[in-house]
Structure formats: C-alpha cells, structure tokens
Amino acid sequence: MKNFFRDLFTKNSKLNTDQLIIKKTVISFFFFFVFAGAAVWGWVWLRDQPSSSGRTSAPLRKVLNTNEAIFSNILSDRHLAKTYPLSLAANPARVNGNLGLKSQFDPATWVMNVIRSKGDTLKIRLEDIKQLPKTEIVFNFKCIEGWNQITHWGGVKFSDFMKAYGLNEEAAMKYLGLSTPDKQYYVGIDMPSAMHPQTLLCYELNGQPLPLDQGYPLRLIIPVKYGVKSLKRIGFMYFDNKRTPDYWADVKGYDYFTGL
C-alpha cells in the first residue's frame, strides 16, 4: 500500500510497466469519477431548483428566454407560415380545450373590450370587426402537444385592426395581452408576432361563423405560434411594455414565446 501511494507520485520514467499501468489507471479513474460526480451534482442542483412559475425553475426559464433571444436574432420573424389550397383544409376542425369557455356566456351581449394605454376602453362589436377588410388563411395549425392540422380561417388581420382603430401607440408597445370574458384564460404575445401579417382576429372557420367551441364570436389565430396562443372568445385586449400574463407560462411552466 505504501508503495502504491509512492508510485502515484513517482515520475513515469522511473516506474516499470506494471507500476505505470496501475498509476495511469488510478489517475484516469479518479478523474472519471470526479467528473461523473460533478455531473450528478449539477443534475441534482438543477432538479432541486424551486419552480418560479408553473413547473419551470428559474434556470430553465432563463434558458427558454435565452433560446428565444438567440433564435429571434438568427432568424427573421417576418417569415410567413406555409399556406395550402382550400381543398386540404380539415372539416370539421379539431376542437382541443375549453379553457375560459366554461362560464355562463351570452353571445348577444358580447363586445370586445380594448383597454387603451391611456386607460379608456373601446367596446367593439362583431359587426364593427366585420366592416374591416377580410383575410382568409389555410395553414398547418400546430398544437404544442404535437399534433397538427391544415385548417381554414377567416377574419381581420390584427395589424389592419390596429391601424383602423388608430391604436398606433398601443402597437408600438412590446406586448399584447388577451383574455376570455370570464378572465379564466389569458395569453401574452410579443408585439412583433401579433403584428405579423398572418395574425388574424378570426370570426370564420371553413367559411362559416365560428362554432361556440371554436371561440365564437371572435378568436385569435396566430400561425407563428403554437395553438395555445390562439385564444378563443376574446373578451379583453390590453397592451404593456412588460410581459402580459400568460396562462401557459405563468401557471403551467411553458415557454412564454413558443414561437414557431
């Protein structure tokens, strides 16, 4: 044993082959287990971080935000989602989720409340929205769960709507917020994605008024995001330079941007 420790600190040139094999093996395994231990420690540290929002801890949240910053710098968010011929659109379209749609709701009295940055509120009816130029899109709707479906939607470009109502100051802010009339479901969207030319305030599916379970009277369709951002039955619209609240990011631990 004494020789063993002495050999570890003896110059290689003074050792015979047997001693050298032992020395090299011991040193290699020592460092192997040191690094393996460090890796396990790092993993346990990461797993033990308290969840700051939903199930996602602060370090992981930071990574998600950094990823978005990296990819939105490398790539241009001006790219359009691929569009398809009408004949490929699914009918009926898949219904997935009824968050914010479970409360008592009277479509006849519905208005969209647009809370301006000065604090006053515009109350906009479906008929008003339908006055604006209509845009249709057939695109591959992608759910964060992993399924996708080609669907056909009609409505008003969000950017056209903002212009028509003179919401220029609001459009210059960093984030858009939307919530259902009962405020049980709400999403936050970065303004560049909201102002993307394919983002619609949508009132038609397959050429027909939206069914209730698809968000009648008015919903969002935002092809550059997963479906979670395409909020059904818009009750309130608001703007902020800070991130607006987001159900999936704040409660469920998902990435805030979920940009495609």
Binding site: F71, K82, K142, V224, L260
Partner: peptide, 20 residues
Amino acid sequence: YKPVQLGWLCALFGGYKMAR
C-alpha cells in the same frame, strides 16, 4: 422547433409531420 421560420428545412424532410 421552428417550422415557420425554417420552413425550407421542414419541407426538406417532407413536412412537419414527417420531420417528427
């Protein structure tokens, strides 16, 4: 991950479904 921004890459693999 970025099927809209990297639409060409998605198409190269035969679309979103096939890439998955």
